[in-house]
């Protein structure tokens, strides 16, 4: 369970998150919605441990995640094993010479046997529809292909929590459906999926819970899918994001 209490985050250029209180249960599919620049990506950075909140506390299960706690390499690495993060710009995540090496990078870090690594890589490439790309150079892939390879490379680590920042951008309608179905399967297998998006229509049938941000970086609503169904006005508002 991820718990955020009174979280605020300040960039030198201004406020990104203002007094956010959230409890995200394990095994849920959560959609983070809101207009551009409302703080969704910053929240994901905090959840992944890449950024520390200016004020407030962040807790995973019973463990308080602080800058001091993250200074210990063992603790930081344990957190990274638990939480996977697919960046909004997948270009930044791909640094290996081939797609195969890219996906194998994570499992190799886990110290798995080469046969197990090969098995995992093949599975992840197949799940994301990237098997044909395995010998290609990630740099030369299209935007949508890079997104899928980035997801495969994070999946290969088998994280319990999967953070995704606008993962559907640049994908075709068919590929979007396939990715959402895969994420739903992962959630049904017990993983926590937290996905930032500004497209409500795409995720409304998949997410079980919606965390909605205001443009002023405050939390507008934290609703279950059922509760949101009862609010057609809010749904119409979200559809216009």
């Amino acid at each position: 369970m991820l718990t955020l209490a009174n979280i605020s985050f300040q960039y030198p250029s201004g406020l990104a998150l203002d007094q956010i209180n959230l409890t995200l249960p394990a095994g849920a599919f959560v959609g983070l919605l809101g207009p551009n620049g409302c703080g969704k990506s910053t929240l994901l950075r905090i959840l992944s441990g890449l950024a520390q909140p200016t004020t407030g506390t962040y807790q995973i299960d019973d463990q308080l995640i602080t800058a001091e706690w993250l200074k210990q390499p063992q603790q930081r690495q344990a957190l990274h094993q638990k939480i996977g993060f697919v960046f909004q710009n997948s270009d930044l995540q791909l640094f290996n010479a081939t797609v195969n090496a890219e996906v194998a990078y994570g499992p190799q870090q886990l110290g798995l046997a080469p046969t197990v690594v090969a098995h995992r890589v093949a599975d992840c490439l197949a799940l994301t529809g990237c098997t044909d790309l395995k010998d290609r150079i990630p740099y030369q892939l299209s935007g949508g292909e890079k997104k899928r390879v980035a997801l495969a490379s994070v999946l290969a680590l088998n994280p319990q929590v999967l953070l995704l920042d606008e993962p559907l951008n640049g994908l075709t309608a068919g590929a979007q459906q396939e990715m959402l179905t895969l994420l739903q399967q992962l959630q049904q297998a017990g993983k926590t999926i937290i996905m930032a998006s500004h497209n409500f229509q795409q995720i409304k049938t998949y997410a079980q819970r919606f965390v909605i941000f205001n443009a002023d970086h405050t939390l507008a609503a934290d609703l279950t899918a059922k509760a949101l169904q009862a609010q057609p006005d809010l749904q119409a508002e979200l559809a216009l994001l």
Binding site: P73, R76, Q77, D123, G129, Q185, G190
Partner: peptide, 29 residues
Amino acid sequence: MTKKTELPTWLQQPDRPVQPAKHHNFLVK
């Protein structure tokens, strides 16, 4: 594009936590 639809077993259960190395500050620094 041929796509696998079923999740493999290893993805359905958590991995054993890896014992991370002590000295690994290269990236952070």
